[in-house]
Design a protein around this nucleic acid. Structure first.
Lengths: 291, 291
DNA sequence: CAAAATGCTTGACTAAGGTCAGGAAAAATA
DNA sequence: TATTTTTCCTGACCTTAGTCAAGCATTTTG
């Protein structure tokens, strides 16, 4: 009775109540849940209705009708996509933005309330939620390109730096600055900056910069604590290697530090092998791979 | 964008999907969700329909109809409560028990599936779920009497022993045996054994045994790691003190070890003060309180 | 260019959940 | 004992969600 599954089911019950309560409060704005959910997916810049349908798994007839009620309330405008006039796009009107902000406020308030219940340790609660969300969203984790100066990219780098400071003797926060001075190196056509997303949370990153015409360097592999053990680091390495290949590189290098043991193990199982030192100081290990 | 509230809302989205999927699989038994939920609240011994209505927050008319469909399927039997013939009680028939077991199996299977997704660290996932469930169910935590040989009681004691072994030098698992040799001391009319429940998970315990006609001893205060910081220990102490009072005791004593710092702090803030040693060995602190 | 496929809308229909007023039986209260 | 209250049932009715087939405009394919 105290086994893992009983505990998990208790979690399910607790969370069902919570989610149900959130739905109830959305109802407070005098609109059925279906319409409210659709409205919350529409951006001021416009959202393809096919995208809404896919996200909410709605029947096309049903969605069509929900959109029409929102349009009748003057919350959204529907327009044909100029590129393909069969497709339609929904835009938020100013009134729609106001309404949407009201829903945001409800969600925000309820979240704050939940957080308040955590008492003295909200961080522990958030960590637990991150772990669960990442686990449940595991199959949805996707790797996408980013610009090294994006705010998500900077957040990843900051977390990576925090890790280095924590793990490697002799590295202090002052030695690491953001944004990257050589950001240009991590952009196409010679470099890349990849982020692994779980829902709208960046949970991992890796990047690539040119060393010479045929050699590139893999830099800053990081996976968030809550997302480890799910093969994300390996997926990032595969992604960056195939990207390097498609950018025309034949050789890859990287440097790392003995304190990052899991990373070193990962590199080796990905087919990387030791090479002579080509950088200094915090680096203690140097690996290479030919594509 | 990476603040606590954004993360919490991501958690909400992840978990909504999961709960929705569970509902979908309940649908697999060819019965609408409402009826399935009602069925799962009915015990073979019989459940008052007022209780079901309260738990699911259903309209009496609606519940009446749901019960009738279950009765028509021969899954339940309805009978008037002999004590108050206005009230009715629902009993599971053998067919109903079979059907209920099928729902249990579905929930169990889905839970096992989720657990499998945790990869190499299922324990971390369960710990996270416990923390969240306990936090969300905080207001529902209730303290009830138990028998010291109940399986929940034994589980609490085992966890308490594990804590002692971990915290106190010189205590080894072999020194602590279950069930308690003097279980009788913790039963009415001279003793008590209280358990704090969060949903169906025991998250804390405390017990009381007689020392002499006017003095009792408080023993084995424990709160699960996932439930700390919510005042449960304090509630347990209040409960056991008022129980001692109603059992006619005038004085309370307890012994504890210096390693259990939070407990000692709690005792002092509950109005306990140092008294002369009255036990030996692992005990290093002795406190008392006059009611 | 004709045929097929795609994206969406419309209307007809169903199931499920939920509300409400009224009423019967039983219990509590005056 | 008469009145009020409680508990539940019944029937009428409504809203929401969801399915399905037909149809229109547009794009893609052969």
């Amino acid at each position: 009775m105290l086994d893992a599954i009983a505990r998990l089911r208790r979690f399910n019950r607790a969370v069902t109540r919570e989610v149900g309560a959130l739905d109830q409060s959305y109802l407070g704005r005098g609109r059925p849940l279906g319409a409210a959910r659709v409205l919350q997916l529409i951006t001021p810049q416009g959202t393809d209705i096919a995208e809404i349908r896919a996200k909410l798994a709605l029947d096309s007839g049903l969605l069509s009708r929900l959109l029409r009620t929102l349009e009748a309330e003057a919350l959204i405008q529907l327009a044909s996509d100029p590129a393909d006039r069969r497709c339609r796009t929904a835009h938020l009107t100013p009134a729609g933005q106001t309404e949407m902000a009201a829903y945001e406020a409800i969600g925000y308030a309820r979240a704050a309330e939940t957080l308040a219940r955590a008492g003295k340790q909200p961080q522990a609660l958030i960590d637990a939620m991150d772990l669960i969300a990442t686990t449940l969203l595991r199959d949805q984790t996707e790797i996408r390109d980013a610009d090294p100066n994006d705010c998500a990219a900077l957040a990843c780098l900051q977390s990576y730096y925090d890790l280095l400071v924590e793990k490697i003797q002799g590295i202090t926060p002052g030695m690491l600055t953001l944004p990257l001075a050589d950001a240009q190196n991590y952009r196409p056509p010679h470099g890349a900056f990849l982020i692994a997303w779980s829902d709208d949370l960046p949970v991992g990153t890796v990047s690539l910069r040119p060393l010479d015409a045929t050699t590139a360097e893999v830099k800053r592999l990081w996976v968030d604590r809550s997302a480890r053990g799910q093969g994300i680091a390996r997926r990032l390495m595969h992604a960056i290697e195939s990207r390097a290949k498609s950018l025309g590189y034949a050789h890859l290098k990287l440097d790392t530090n003995a304190a990052l043991t899991e990373a070193i193990t990962l590199y080796r199982t990905c087919g990387w092998s030791d090479i002579p030192a080509y950088t200094s100081d915090p680096a203690t290990h140097w690996l290479g791979k030919t594509l």
